[in-house]
Design a protein around this nucleic acid. Structure first.
Ligand SMILES: [Mn+2]
Ligand SMILES: [Mn+2]
Ligand SMILES: [Zn+2]
Ligand SMILES: [Zn+2]
Lengths: 137, 137
DNA sequence: ATGTTAATTGCAACTTAATTGCATTGTACT
DNA sequence: AGTACAATGCAATTAAGTTGCAATTAACAT
């Protein structure tokens, strides 16, 4: 029942703290990217007292451990989500802020073209869509 | 010889100031997205003394006037470039910071799929590639 | 040319996300 | 229990960007 990521971290010699477990659990059980402050609020709500600094540090740590990834959706703050799920991107509702996943078959073709067309050695990419969700239309 | 954007602004009743002309000219003559601070430095170099606040305010103004657009390439600062050129995206070299344009034929297909697959009313999107430029490989 | 008016600007203060130093705490292991 | 050092809290700091307000100045009319 314990998270796979936690297990891995422990094996690597990292400690399993209340904050760490909770943050990983929240990230695992939320199906959309989360911002640091939002994560902090969620922790508060479930009764876990951590400093916002710890949240930032933990996110940085999880990034380095390749457990989560950055999701740049807004100009003002970064979002984060678990790695390892099938590759996908996101839709952000510009009215209510709702975020949804979107996976695109034709992305393959796009990436191939990018590799062909460019002399860069492309390592990663960022893609996001903006518009209004069904409810806000 | 005077910029088209400037003409349009003047006709709309906006003033043509030293800062405004210079900023538009720099944006028009630079083939890559520019960050506010970088723009500020470029202005300094050509001997135009403006406060960084003015640069931010002018960028905000040009956004509202639909003359430039935001280009989110970095987590830390926004870039801006002229609108109106053929639709394209960008490559950022993670080693030297160099930025290049990239236009992709197959983007059409991708956007169509996005519209089909999603219930969102998609208005815009953001796409960027990260890797190493030829010189840095 | 000079005057008038509102757009623009500079400056200082402020906001907000994120980072850092350092002393303290707590996890993991013996 | 005792030890070591990873993790944390707290305060200070950094950096992008914003805002209020008084001073400046472009544009236009006289
Ligand atoms: Mn997702
Ligand atoms: Mn470009
Ligand atoms: Zn919505
Ligand atoms: Zn490079």
């Amino acid at each position: 029942m314990k998270s796979d990521s936690l297990q891995t971290l422990k094996e690597k010699g990292h400690r399993i703290t209340q904050a760490r477990s909770a943050i990983i659990e929240l990230l695992e059980n939320t199906d959309r990217p989360i911002a640091a402050k939002s994560l902090y609020t969620m922790l508060e709500r479930i009764g876990i007292k951590v400093n916002i600094t710890t949240v930032y540090r933990e996110l940085e740590f999880l990034l380095q451990e390749n457990i989560i990834e950055k999701v740049p959706l807004k100009d003002t703050e970064l979002h984060y989500e678990m790695k390892g799920r099938p590759h996908h991107h996101h839709l952000l509702c510009t009215s209510c802020g709702n975020i949804e996943d979107i996976a695109l078959e034709s992305e393959h073709t796009l990436l191939e073209e990018a590799h062909t067309v460019s002399a860069y050695n492309i390592k990663r990419h960022s893609l996001a869509f903006y518009g209004q969700c069904p409810k806000c239309q």
